[in-house]
Computed example of a mutant assay.
Amino acid sequence: MLRDDIRPTEFTLSCILSSLSLLPVERGTLVHALVIKSGLELDAIVASTLVEMYFKFGLVDFAVEIFNKMVQRDLISWNTMIMGLADNGRVVETLDTFRELLEKGPLPDQITLVGVLLACQYGGLVEDALAIFSEMESSYGIKPSKEHYSRIIELLCQDGRPYEAVDIVEAMCYEPDSSILESVLCACAILGDFRLATRIAKSLVELEPQSSLSYLILAWMYEMRGQWGDVVRVKKTMEGKRVKKVIGCSLIGIRNTVYSFEANQLQHHGGRDIYFVLRLLNWEMEDEIDFCL
């Protein structure tokens, strides 16, 4: 496009910026420079996408600076800011931005409140989250979605209050999905409530028969109680249903390469690849320090 002397539009640049999250940050800054050269840095769509990109890179200060320079801020801009701050663990800044939105911006929507509840979840602000959740319809005219229920339930479970979480699960107008049941199940296991954990695990097995979590927690709780026969029975059930453990995966982008790591790779394989990437990260940081000096 550039070779053919075709000027990129705001939609072209927005699409390019949205696709850069797994690539090195240098690629993002190059596109940012192209945005400035094209005179589109104040465009609401492009600016919001730039804010989102820098949040994905973890460069919160750059994202905030761009947001503060925006002349026009629509709800998408505000939601991008609130979700980005929440995803990066900036709890206080998220709530401050939400209050600013209520004073200056348009009315919040479902996405706005998902970001606010997510910030409360990261900050352990249970009572604040419950207050916002309880007044969603009365104050903002927003009916809680399954995502809002999920945030509140996970927060209660993290706070060691699975019984209140179960009450909300039973009262909500949606069928609970596996992530909600998994949160309640883990909280019950931590508290040692074997009866409730068994009940939730059975519901989870019916919903996700190939999920390994319910079987593993049941086996662990049976083991803690010394019920070895039940441990064997659960493991045989897993083998009979061919339930496989879900292995988590993390991605790290360094310059022009994206590295992938599976859970327990450090223990199982000596972590050679992980230590290699850590050395690369160390060299990268040393280069940045030398550049700043």
Results as ranks from 00 to 15, higher is better:
Asp74Leu: 09
Val243His: 07
Pro144Gln: 03
Glu135Asn: 12
Val92Met: 09
Leu185Asn: 12
Tyr122Lys: 15
Ile16Gln: 04
Val116Asn: 01
Ala165His: 05
Leu42Tyr: 12
Gly160Gln: 03
Val277Phe: 08
Glu284His: 11
Leu185His: 10
Gly39Lys: 06
Leu50Val: 01
Leu23Met: 09
Lys245Asn: 08
Asp167Lys: 10
Glu103Trp: 10
Ile289Cys: 08
Phe133Arg: 09
Leu95Tyr: 06
Ala189Met: 10
Val64Tyr: 05
Ala129Tyr: 04
Ile190Ala: 07
Asp128Lys: 13
Leu22Thr: 10
Leu17Met: 03
Thr237Leu: 12
Tyr122Ile: 02
Glu286Val: 12
Gly28Cys: 02
Thr49Cys: 11
Ser203Ile: 01
Gly226His: 09
Asp109Arg: 00
Leu266Val: 15
Arg161Ala: 09
Lys143Cys: 09
Lys244Met: 11
Ser138Pro: 00
Cys292Thr: 08
Val231Ile: 07
Leu50Lys: 01
Arg7His: 12
Ala33Met: 07
Ser19Glu: 07
Thr94Gly: 02
Leu130Met: 15
Val166Ile: 13
Cys120Val: 10
Gly105Thr: 05
Val35Gly: 00
Asn88His: 01
Ile45Met: 13
Tyr275Gly: 03
Glu100Val: 02
Ala201Thr: 09
Pro108Gly: 07
Ile247Leu: 10
Glu154Arg: 12
Ile252Pro: 00
Ile247Met: 10
Leu2Ile: 10
Tyr54Ala: 04
Gln72Ile: 13
Leu85Gly: 01
Ile200Phe: 06
Ile289Met: 15
Ser214Ile: 03
Val184Lys: 02
Ile66Asn: 00
Arg225Leu: 11
Glu100Phe: 06
Ser134Pro: 01
Leu40Gly: 00
Gln210Ala: 15
Ser211Cys: 13
Ile132Met: 11
Lys236Asp: 14
Ala171Gln: 14
Phe62Cys: 10
Leu50Ser: 04
Leu59Lys: 11
Ser212His: 15
Arg99Thr: 11
Met285Arg: 12
Pro108Ile: 09
Leu156Lys: 06
Ser183Ile: 03
His268Leu: 14
Met83Ile: 13
Glu41Leu: 01
Val31Ala: 00
Asp4Leu: 15
Val231His: 05
Pro209Asn: 09
Phe62Pro: 00
Ala47Trp: 04
Gly89Pro: 07
Arg199Phe: 07
Thr198Phe: 05
Lys104Trp: 14
Glu100Trp: 13
Thr80Arg: 00
Asp273Leu: 13
Lys104Gln: 15
Ile200Tyr: 01
Leu20Met: 06
Val231Cys: 08
Ser19Thr: 12
Phe67Cys: 03
Gly253Asp: 09
Ala219His: 03
Val25Gly: 01
Ser77Met: 08
Asp61Pro: 00
Glu206Met: 14
Phe57His: 15
Lys146Val: 12
Leu251Phe: 13
Leu23Ser: 12
Pro24His: 10
Ser14Cys: 04
Leu125Ala: 06
Ser150Asn: 08
Ser138His: 03
Cys157Val: 08
Arg27Thr: 05
Ser214Gln: 11
Ser48Phe: 04
Ile247Tyr: 06
Asp87Tyr: 13
Thr257Ala: 07
Arg3Glu: 08
Gln110Arg: 14
Leu181Gln: 06
Asp5Tyr: 06
Ser211Gly: 11
Glu284Asp: 14
Arg279Gly: 03
His32Trp: 02
Leu191Ala: 00
Glu164Met: 15
Ala119Gln: 02
Tyr122His: 14
Asp128Phe: 11
Thr97Asn: 06
Leu118Phe: 15
Ala189His: 13
Tyr140Leu: 01
Leu75Tyr: 07
